[in-house]
Design a protein around this nucleic acid. Structure first.
Lengths: 197, 197
DNA sequence: TAAAAGTCTTAAACTAGTTCATTTTTTTTC
DNA sequence: GAAAAAAAATGAACTAGTTTAAGACTTTTA
C-alpha cells in the first residue's frame, strides 16, 4: 500500500525497532493527528498541559525553557524524523515548563495521551518500540551532557557544527548561543575567532 | 513465599510498574546474579565491555568518567534501590568510558546481557517495565540537567543538599565537587559560606 | 519600499569559578 | 596508636564567560 510521505516517514521510523503488519500500520496511523505550525508560532507554552507527543515530518522547532532571569535555554532543535514534546508533562498531566516554537513552517504527527495508552493495549509491541526509543534517547542524552561538561564553549560550538552541519544553517546565532549555554555576545566572539583560525 | 531481603527489594521495585505472578518472580530471580563489591574497589573501569546492568541492594557507589585532563566527573551516586551501569556499553557491546567504584562495601543484583534479552522473550511484560523505567529516568535526567544549567554552583549545592539529605552524609566533599561540577577548593569555599549564613 | 524590529559585532569593566601553593584536619593502614 | 595518606581549608593570582552599551547589518511587516 502506498502511504503519504509523512506517514511513510513515521512508519519507517517505527520499523527500525519493531515489525508491523499492514493492519497494525493502519491501526497505528489512525491514532495519529496531523498538525501544522507556522513559523514563529507556538506548539506548546509553559503552563499548558501537554496532551500530545510529536513526531516532526517537516520543518524545525526549538524546545526551550526560561530560567528565573527570563533567559532562554534551548534543549533541542527538532527537525524531520525527530520525536519531541514534554514527556514529563505528558505523563504526569502537570503543566509544562517548556516552550516549543517553530523556527520554520512545520508539519508534525501527534499522538494524544489517550491514544498512547490505547496503542499499548491494541499493539503491545509498541511497549518494545518505546522501550528502545527511550533507552536510546537516554544513552544519547547522557552522552551529550557528559561530553559537554568538560568542554569549553568554543569546543562545544565546534562539536555542534561537526555533529549537526544540516541544522546549523537553519538556526540563528542567538538560538545557537541559547543551546550552547552562553550569551549571544560571547557566541559572536567564538564564531569570529573560529572562522579566523 | 518468603524472599531474602535483596530479592524482596528488587521485586518491590519492579512491582511498582508491572504485576508478576509467583512463577514469573521465580523466573526473574533465576536470571539475576549476586555481586559484592568492597569499598574502594571497582565494579567497572573504562575500557571494560560491560556485560551487566545493576540494581543496588546495599551500599553506595560513584559512577564517573575522567575527562581529557584526567579530572573526574561524577554522574550519579548509586545507593539502595537504584539501578546503575553503563547502558550505552551494555547495549552496543562497546568498551565503556565509565568507572563505577564502591564508596562503601556494597551488594548488587546484576542482569547479564544474555539474560536481559531472555527476560523479554520469557516475560514480555518486562518490555513495559523497562519502557516505564527508562521513560522516568529520561524525565528526571532532563529535569536535572535543565535545572542545573541556570543555577550557580552554590545553588546547585543547596539543591543537592535538600534533595538528597541521606546521600550527602555518605560521600566526601571532593566527590560532591566532582558531581556538582566544580573544583574541591571552590566546593570548600561554598560550604563554609553556606554554613556561615 | 520605508520604517520598525530583530540580529550581529565590538569593546570595556566585571564576576564566578580555576589554579597553584601551603597548612591543618581527618581517615586509613600496619 | 603512630605514621602515612588522603581530604579539607585558605588565600592570591588568574581566566572563561557575563554585562552593559552602542552602532551596523538584516529581516519582517505594513
Amino acid at each position: 500500500m502506498k502511504l503519504e510521505n509523512s506517514h511513510q516517514l513515521i512508519i519507517d521510523n517505527v520499523s527500525r525497532f519493531i515489525d508491523l503488519t499492514e493492519l497494525e500500520k493502519q491501526k497505528y496511523m489512525s491514532l495519529l493527528t496531523d498538525i501544522k505550525v507556522k513559523k514563529k508560532t507556538f506548539l506548546m507554552q509553559a503552563g499548558d498541559i501537554t496532551t500530545y507527543e510529536y513526531f516532526i515530518t517537516k520543518g524545525c522547532l526549538k524546545v526551550y525553557t526560561l530560567d528565573e532571569g527570563g533567559a532562554p535555554h534551548i534543549s533541542m532543535f527538532a527537525v524531520e524524523d525527530y520525536w519531541t514534546g514534554d514527556m514529563a508533562s505528558f505523563m504526569t498531566i502537570e503543566p509544562t515548563r517548556y516552550f516549543i516554537k517553530a523556527t520554520e513552517d512545520s508539519e508534525l504527527l501527534g499522538i494524544s495521551r489517550a491514544n498512547y495508552d490505547l496503542l499499548f493495549q491494541e499493539i503491545p509491541k509498541f511497549e518494545r518500540f518505546y522501550r528502545i526509543l527511550y533507552q536510546r534517547s537516554l544513552i544519547s542524552y547522557i552522552r551529550r551532557s557528559n561530553h559537554s561538561i568538560s568542554l569549553t564553549a568554543e569546543e562545544r560550538y565546534i562539536a555542534f557544527k561537526r555533529k549537526y552541519p544540516n541544522i546549523i544553517n537553519r538556526i540563528t546565532q542567538k538560538d545557537l548561543a541559547a543551546y550552547i549555554g552562553i550569551t549571544p555576545e560571547f557566541m559572536s566572539k567564538i564564531i569570529s575567532k573560529v572562522n579566523r583560525m
